[in-house]
Design a protein around this nucleic acid. Structure first.
Lengths: 195, 195
DNA sequence: CATTCAAACTGAGGGTTCCTCAGGTTGTCA
DNA sequence: TGACAACCTGAGGAACCCTCAGTTTGAATG
């Protein structure tokens, strides 16, 4: 019995499930509008639920953020596999990086939470972040083996780069998004040959 | 009378001045310890002053942040002139950039405030940010004229780069500062020749 | 159905921080 | 030694956080 695979225990009762979903939807909207520090009481109210119910489903703000972004990040990990098999190593890496930047900056404050999770086990997003780390590292290693990316770049540095660019995007996305250009610049510092 | 040059009106009365300084010192300590969102009431209390007094001198949190960082940033602008006359253009630019990164990440949250100020007149730090922008742009132009930096890089992009690196430093400075390496990578994407 | 009870929900309430403002204090100038 | 502008104080309303005692309800069971 109870064979959930360690990943998530969603509510079982019908009303619980309904509320869980409503809260999640409200949270998505709120985070997108006001960043990761949107008011939780406002979210609960928008979901038509008392504040206690929100806390029942998501004991901490980080848990709620994790839930709202899980799908996107899962998708990102899946993309890594797809790209690796469909494109040449450098293309796969750069394509994945630009997707990663977009996902990391879904709303204001997310990159910060993700980078903290990356190194802090015990945070809700840690598992997902570790998975992403592996995906990125794989793509990086392939591109390095192919001789397209400098051999001395570590996965950690790759993520520093990604999160830096994502943070800039987070800030600038309102006034003309400059992240694509920024990422291209970063890539030039990383690749071994000119395009 | 009252010939202050538009830059700052410091309190005139002796007790006012004393409190102003005490608040500033407490704020520096608090920001460094807890980031830019440290409790203002705690700062006031540490300065031995009522909360109203803090608000009298610094009507907004941004104003307080600006005051605590003004010296450092003024110094940064001064450095730009010095470097420009003492070193070759590329050296001057790279040297200045690494100093800028350090200043931008004096405490958690600062880069965000500065980038917002950069484009939002009406914020307390805007004047200082604009001055920095000019300094950086001058150094950049010189390096570009010398053929050391790609000609298509705009000052705006330079600052995106700087703030991205500074943000990463802000996050990682506790567990081994990786910003020097990151900045070097960024520079390789920017310069026209290998070192 | 009726019963049962764990799961789920509610919202009052104590704590923190923000910021304002009416009223009291004090430095300074004449 | 006034006189007054500058300065200071801290109570208090508002927003948000999070907890928990008490209540409701979905669904399993007889």
């Amino acid at each position: 019995m109870d064979d959930r695979p360690y990943i998530a225990q969603r509510p079982r009762r019908a009303d619980g499930q309904r509320n869980y979903d409503a809260i999640l939807a409200a949270a998505r909207k709120a985070f997108e509008a006001s960043g990761s520090d949107a008011s939780l009481e406002e979210i609960a109210s928008q979901a038509g639920v008392a504040i206690g119910t929100l806390y029942r489903h998501f004991p901490t703000r980080a848990a709620l953020v994790e839930a709202t972004t899980r799908d996107g990040l899962e998708n990102l990990v899946a993309q890594a596999g797809r790209l690796a098999s469909e494109r040449d190593p450098l293309d796969a890496l750069t394509g994945w990086m630009s997707e990663a930047v977009v996902h990391f900056s879904t709303f204001r404050g997310l990159v910060g939470i993700l980078t903290r999770s990356m190194y802090d086990e015990g945070t809700p997003s840690h598992a997902m972040c570790a998975a992403m780390h592996r995906s990125g590292a794989d793509l990086l290693r392939a591109a390095q083996t192919a001789g397209d990316v400098r051999a001395d770049l570590t996965p950690g540095e790759l993520f520093d780069l990604l999160s830096g660019v994502a943070w800039v995007r987070e800030q600038t996305v309102s006034r003309g998004d400059a992240s694509a250009r920024l990422l291209r610049l970063a890539l030039e510092g990383i690749t071994t040959r000119e395009s």
